[in-house]
């Protein structure tokens, strides 16, 4: 098992290298000049050229990339062009906010979607099932910025229950977490339902019933554990989508997380900040998927035995 985890951790290295390479070159292709941006509109041609030289912006992109990676390996992600603060400190300040938001969202959606999926499957084609699936379809079809705006209109402007943005305590977490959760709730519900439907037709469910196991225990103990295996895959993938969704949701709700930081940095062409944010996103996604893979092994003994 340790070997399996170690191998999965090693596999993250090429993934992270690929992510940095791709993002670095894409950013270098975008128009605009960092030096003139830092110095502002009144700067002279000369001072801009001087700064460009000093920052190494005249070197070939590949050289810049190698230099960046050299610093990165020493734990230095550079300084923000816009604020001058280190990227590390900005991210350290913002990341916990994004973490809290996405983790609450994923918890919320798992909490809602698994029971709905299970009940929909066990009462296939009932009213509950049909209504549930229609709501899921609606949820999956709405982009998070749109859901977010609707929720703000309903619950902040009209009802005044929750703040429309910012981060003041638990109450301001509710709307953004819910917004983020809606789309993933829909797809996790659908996956749970379909894998549950498949599992409850398996022979071993009949074996369990033939033993005299009650209906509820059959569902909870015999069916759900098997049905969760595909559901967990989707939960892992959804987490990635949630991180992406966090970019928009944080912007809509003025949530001071990395997503918003990234959007602002892209607008300012603040390359070190964008890179730093993307690396943190990629790392978070990889770690979550690692956790999912380890969870797999705990649920499904067949996977575990492949690696022990």
């Amino acid at each position: 098992m340790t070997k399996y985890i170690l191998r999965r951790i090693l596999m993250m290295i090429p993934v992270m290298l690929g992510v940095t390479l791709l993002v670095f070159f894409i950013i270098s292709l975008t128009p605009g000049d960092a030096a003139s941006m830092i110095l502002g509109q009144e700067a002279t041609e000369e001072s801009i050229a001087e700064l460009r030289e000093e920052m190494g912006l005249n070197d070939p992109t590949i050289v810049q990339y190698v230099r960046y990676m050299g610093d990165l390996f020493q734990g230095d992600m550079g300084n923000s062009y816009a604020t001058g603060k280190t990227v590390n400190s900005e991210i350290a300040q913002r990341f916990p906010n994004t973490f809290v938001l996405t983790v609450s969202a994923i918890f919320l959606s798992v909490l809602i979607s698994i029971p709905i999926g299970v009940v929909s499957a066990t009462r296939q084609y009932s009213i509950f099932d049909n209504v549930g699936m229609i709501i899921a379809l609606v949820g999956i079809s709405m982009p998070s910025f749109w859901t977010g705006l609707l929720l703000i209109i309903a619950f902040s402007l009209k009802l005044g229950w929750f703040p429309s943005g910012g981060m003041e305590g638990f109450i301001s977490l509710i709307l953004p977490a819910f917004t983020l959760a809606i789309a993933s709730t829909a797809s996790i519900t659908r996956t749970t339902r379909s894998s549950m439907l498949e599992v409850i037709r398996q022979d071993y469910i009949n074996t369990a019933k033939a033993k005299g196991v009650t209906r509820n225990v059959v569902i909870r103990k015999h069916a759900l554990k098997n049905a969760l295996i595909p559901a967990i895959t989707v939960i892992g993938l959804e987490f990635g989508i949630l991180l992406g969704g966090a970019v928009l949701t944080e912007t809509v709700f003025s949530w001071p997380g990395i997503g918003r930081l990234m959007v602002e940095s892209i607008q300012r062409k603040d390359t070190p900040m964008v890179l730093g944010s993307v690396i943190v996103f990629a790392l978070a996604f990889s770690v979550v998927n690692l956790i999912i893979d380890i969870l797999y092994a705990f649920i499904d003994p067949r996977i575990k035995s492949n690696y022990s």
Binding site: Q202, D203, Y204, N206, T207, A208, K209, A210, K211, G212, V213, K221, H222, K225, N226, I299, D300, P301, R302
Partner: peptide, 20 residues
């Protein structure tokens, strides 16, 4: 079920729960 009357199913490959 399971006490007075029991049943053995046709295909042993699928009759057992893989995760228990």
């Amino acid at each position: 079920r399971g006490d007075v009357v029991s049943m053995i199913f046709q295909d042993p490959m699928t009759a057992l729960n893989p995760v228990i």
